[in-house]
Design a protein around this nucleic acid. Structure first.
Lengths: 348, 348
DNA sequence: ATGAAAGCGCTAACAC
DNA sequence: GTGTTAGCGCTTTCAT
């Protein structure tokens, strides 16, 4: 037995009575239809004010066959590492943007053990559209739903068959390449990488960016070890890298958390940053800002990314023209974990 | 113009037809009423399966006058610092718990500039109950709503008039006292604190805990400087503390972020942690885990706190008996930022 | 145990 | 520009 609605909740009908008009007119005013006289409108507005009337969503939704709710789908595996500041910021961006619209944010944890439940929920007419945040390849299943429900993804889809979905992403390949180029420019020659899972676009794309920068510079691109985006995995990967016995004068980590892990291994092995090794992270989150030294990193506009996802979906829902793919620019934040240029290099 | 409902969405009526029963019976089955024959039930279930029927929330809500949605109210000021891992974990806990119930999570950003909007929304019959997370005194306004809408707060209310609201909180005073006692026990004698805003319960309670431990030990409790829970403010407060020129051999910071800030100031001034100064934080978030050295801290069960809030509210909604106040235990995580005991002290 | 009937509060044609 | 008339898909008495 759940909570009863406030008993005296004023209805549209009461407003109509008080304003001396019909329910239709009240409805028109509430939905700001242009076809209402000034007088009628103000009478209604006043009645609404007086009664403290608030439209009942369920009734409105039932009659209009629109819910005005947007689902934010969070894969369970991500929810578990919700502490990921990047993800938190994306959610924040979404919520902030939606707060300015007439849409309501419905956060749903997508149980990975029974995806059917989520599918049913999304398709059951509970929401007008969905936003999917994920670092995963797990997306496929949802991508399919795109055909029946307007959806916008955070991060590019991993697979070709999903290429026609709407998404907004950071410019991973280019930023990773630029970050690595920066390492080359300041004189590093043995540039390693700690890369992320290859079944996740950010993991894949950032490795590709690193590789392309090294290849264009004619440098060795074999110094690569895998991590899983956690600090611990970064520390582990750094150990393996050093244990190879080859010289390393720079490391590009696919995210800040792994970079922080690498930092502790480096310190443990008596290597100075940036004295012996220059270190670059990715994300620009609080990990990079509070580490010692603060990390040079690729700053992703996480909040803006979330806000943009929301904007794209709302545009889609309201029938405005929308770009299928939106790539958000990143910014290389040069801080203390990379050394100053060895010698002035060609400024491109 | 928003999204149309899936056109062919099967209705209860269709299920009834297929199963050869009335709509009422289908409704009973869907709501697992005990008053249905085995046969009837299985026929209905099969029809539901066959049609892929999903009940329409709006209709159900309109008819039952219950929404099955729970609002998670997030003050805008908090949303802005959403990167706070503690907060993120609480949200995670809420979402995770609710995912197992029949309730849906509705995240609403409470605009602080127009609280009226939020009020209206909550009271407009859009939700069955609300969860309020906040570190603020801003709570009052919502506490009032408790009378009209079942609500559960995260963190104790700041003011007496709100004492009758339901809430779940960490044991701030006791944990702060225990953490400070630990400092005393390991031999520290000049124990400073960097406290949080005094209009926020955690800020207030943790300062009180620190003070009570010092007083019971007969130590000076004047070494206190204020911060606002951000790393930068922690660094600043630490500077002011050191600039007093008095000896300091330990610092209890009201949260990990400020502790990390203090750490950088300490390093900047050439003070070793824990060599010269022992440092204790509060929260047990990723800041404390990844700092150098890792912080001794009071670990709050953030996820469990969120889950508990959700549980309490659901119990409330379903008419089960509930405790008005739930205090979650914390755990002192002794890590490398505090030195080992100087001399074996009395073990209490 | 089951069905019939009456709305829940609103929007959306359609007439006026 | 405004009112009238039907429902939206479901729950819920009330009979049976």
């Amino acid at each position: 037995m759940t909570q009863e609605l406030t008993p005296g909740a004023p209805t549209l009908e009461q407003v109509a009575a008080l304003a001396g008009v019909s329910r239709s007119t009240v409805s028109r005013v509430v939905n700001n239809s242009p076809h209402v006289t000034e007088e009628a409108a103000s009478a209604v507005l006043q009645a609404i004010e007086e009664l403290g009337y608030v439209p009942n969503r369920a009734a409105r939704s039932l009659a209009s066959r629109k819910t005005q709710v947007i689902a934010l789908v969070v894969p369970e595996s991500i929810a578990k590492v919700f502490a990921d500041p990047f993800f938190a910021s994306v959610v924040q961006g979404v919520a902030l943007h939606l707060a300015e619209t007439d849409y309501t944010l419905n956060m749903v944890i997508a149980s990975e053990t029974s995806p059917e439940k989520t599918r049913r929920y999304l398709l059951g007419g509970n929401v007008d559209g969905a936003l999917v945040v994920s670092h995963h390849s797990g997306d496929h299943s949802y991508a399919r739903l795109s055909r029946s429900l307007p959806m916008v993804f955070g991060g590019r889809p991993m697979h070709a068959e999903e290429q026609d979905s709407f998404y907004v992403d950071s410019d991973n390949v280019t930023s990773a390449r630029d970050a690595t180029r920066h390492l080359v420019r300041i004189g590093c020659r043995s540039i390693a990488t700690i890369y992320g899972p290859q079944d996740m676009p950010p993991g894949f794309d950032r490795l590709a960016g690193w590789r392309s920068a090294l290849q264009e510079a004619g440098l060795d691109d074999s110094l690569a070890e895998a991590g899983d985006f956690t600090p611990a995995s970064g520390a582990e990967a750094m150990r393996r890298l050093l244990d190879r016995g080859e010289p390393i004068d720079a490391v590009f980590a696919a995210n800040d958390q792994m970079a922080v892990g690498a930092l502790s291994t480096l310190r443990e092995r008596g290597l100075a940053v940036p004295g012996d090794v220059s270190l670059v992270g990715f994300d620009g989150d609080s990990f990079s800002a509070t580490s010692e030294p603060p990390l040079t990193t690729v700053a992703q506009p996480a909040t803006e990314l979330g806000a943009t996802m929301a904007r794209v979906l709302v545009d889609l829902l309201e029938g405005r023209p929308v770009e299928r793919v939106t790539i958000m620019p990143t910014r290389l934040l040069v801080r203390a974990s990379t050394r100053p240029p060895q010698a002035p290099e060609e400024e491109r």
